[in-house]
Nucleic acid binder design. Structure first.
Length: 269
DNA sequence: GTTATGTTCCGTCATACGGT
DNA sequence: ACCGTATGACGGAACATAAC
């Protein structure tokens, strides 16, 4: 079974114990990446099959091992002010800074396409069953096994069920099911209710709510970190490609200049 | 085979940033 | 102002390689 919705598609497989597996795929889209001048000194080198980037921090007079805490804080403050990749890409995609050569296309020189992250839109599939029945599973590929989520070999599985009221229900423990209202995307504006839909108010439930929220936050942050690293890798690759292109251009221009000089000298003589 | 060292990947935390 | 997202920093685990 498969269903398309907007830019992505979703496939649902029947799993065991009434659990369905939803495979969500997002189409590759062009992403423009353009060179920037790094604010921090960067060393790029190759080690075997790996390309490594090391950000080198230059020691300053202020550096003092005896005041680790304040220094760490200072360092963090300085480093935190580095522009984000998103900001860099936004700035660079403006017409003024648009570069003309091919290295900016959606395909890098090694033929790899960039994948732009987008908003996942989930649609309700099948019949609208009560929350306590028909658990479904959202499978996130490229995920690694963690304690926070039910994962198997590069796949994170989030079990949920959608009730007729549009709320997503995530099972707690064995039989208990709590409701998350997830408007638009997977987990924005989490509203928790009990199985009956009545608000949770007891201290125990409050702590459960807290830990549940934390789990959700960690899960999302985990995914965000993964995505961020992927983007960073692509960004670095793009910079390396750009370096190669510019080096070639430089070489060509030097040779051209040389030839013109020789021509000029011959004419002069 | 064991130990030391280096590299990569991942999860988590803190916080800047951007949207509403 | 508040909230969600993106990202740098940090520490740990796993693996690779070199030196002994």
């Amino acid at each position: 079974m498969s269903a398309g919705n907007g830019p992505g598609t979703a496939d649902i497989e029947n799993g065991t114990q009434g659990i369905s597996v939803v495979h969500v795929s997002i189409p590759n889209q062009a992403i423009q990446v353009q060179p920037v001048i790094q604010a921090n000194p960067t060393v790029i080198h190759s080690a075997g099959n790996y390309q490594t980037i090391q950000v080198v921090r230059v020691a300053t007079v202020d550096d003092d091992l005896s005041s680790d805490d304040s220094d760490a804080k200072k360092r963090r403050e300085i480093l935190a002010r580095r522009p984000s990749y998103r900001k860099i890409l936004n700035d660079l995609s403006s017409p003024v800074n648009k570069m003309e050569d091919d290295s900016n296309s959606s395909q890098s020189q090694d033929g790899q396409e960039y994948v732009q992250s987008g908003t996942l839109q989930l649609t309700a599939h099948g019949d609208a069953t009560p929350a306590t029945q028909g658990l479904q599973t959202l499978t996130m590929t490229n995920a690694s096994p963690t304690s926070a989520s039910n994962s198997t070999g590069g796949t994170t599985i989030v079990q949920y069920a959608q009730g007729p009221d549009g709320q997503f229900y995530i099972p707690v423990g064995g039989t208990n099911v709590q409701a998350y209202q997830i408007p638009g995307s997977l987990a924005q504006g989490v509203v928790m209710t009990g199985v009956t839909g009545s608000p949770i108010s007891s201290p125990q439930h409050m702590s459960e709510e807290g830990s549940r929220k934390r789990e959700l936050r960690l899960l999302k942050n985990r995914e965000a970190a993964r995505e961020c690293r992927r983007k960073k890798k692509e960004y670095v690759k793009c910079l390396e490609n750009r370096v190669a292109v510019l080096e070639n251009q430089n070489k060509t221009l030097i040779e051209e200049l040389k030839a013109l000089k020789e021509l000029y000298c011959q004419k002069d003589a």
